[in-house]
Write a protein that binds this DNA or RNA. Structure first.
Lengths: 153, 153
DNA sequence: TATTGTTATACTCTATAACTATA
DNA sequence: TATAGTTATAGAGTATAACAATA
């Protein structure tokens, strides 16, 4: 009679450790940006708009690997918070564009500083060659697995 | 007149790459366990019960770093799916215990196999010394930052 | 007919707090 | 009063699909 092996533990998986650290980093960052009145998803959205300038929701959806519906909902919240503007396109009246307003543009550098601070808090424990190594390993997986889109959660 | 520096990009942060890979791993795993009718959070819950045997919800809440309410809700879903049992404690009638039933116990090894498979898909791209290095770096951050609890999302 | 974007619906995860039963 | 657990509520994120307007 053969003995059965135990099912592998949670800790046996690299994915487990990855999720543990990633959740810690994201939760800590979420608390920081909350002080500026936004969520992590909103930070990603605002940072994207900062680079693109006025852009169609559908393009943002592609860029952020989100559905149009999700973009709409995020845009609604940021409009309510008066951080972005939604404009009609006179050439194609189906099309809209989204863009940062003055307040939104002023907020992005403050949020970026919080992101810098958060990264330093978590990865400051690593030596600079360790940080490079970690980034290299993560980028390798992103490349191999063709991971795409901006992670927001 | 001094030029202002641009706000740091998303990609400039290790947290960004971590979240990108972690989300990819978790999403892929979520799709796998969905075929067995459970979510990632439910897998974590079931795997914990497999080790503990019958256990109080409050103990599980501690162990999984979740609130009692969250545990209750998860337990409700797993009861509906007939994977666990909820029993009253005759000594203290406030107290309950949760335990896997036969079906739940049979499911855990199948889910563990999916976790193995998923880990292999993502980290198989790395050489074994790279995998060890990645785990070591992640564990170092967990230790330094005293990250705790089982990540479920 | 196809496309753009919004809206409706639904589900998971999370947290807080009110509540019930018991001690 | 304190504790164990459940339930209610709410918000964020996600996805699907129905929908209106326009092309």
């Amino acid at each position: 009679m053969q003995s059965r092996s135990s099912p592998s533990t949670l800790e046996a998986h690299l994915g487990y450790w990855l999720r543990m650290v990633s959740n810690g980093v994201s939760l800590s960052f979420a608390r920081k940006v909350e002080r500026e009145g936004v969520t992590v998803a909103e930070w990603v959205f605002l940072r994207a708009l900062y680079d693109t300038g006025a852009v169609a929701p559908s393009q943002l959806a592609d860029r952020m690997a989100m559905t149009k519906g999700a973009i709409s909902k995020l845009a609604d919240r940021l409009l309510e918070k008066s951080l972005i503007e939604r404009r009609a396109n006179p050439d194609d009246r189906r099309a809209h564009t989204l863009a940062l307003n003055r307040e939104g543009r002023a907020l992005v550098p403050r949020l970026a500083a919080l992101a810098d601070e958060n990264d330093e808090e978590f990865f400051g424990a690593l030596a600079s060659d360790e940080r490079r190594r970690l980034e290299q390993l993560l980028r390798k997986i992103v490349k191999e697995r063709e991971l795409t889109g901006v992670p927001v959660d």
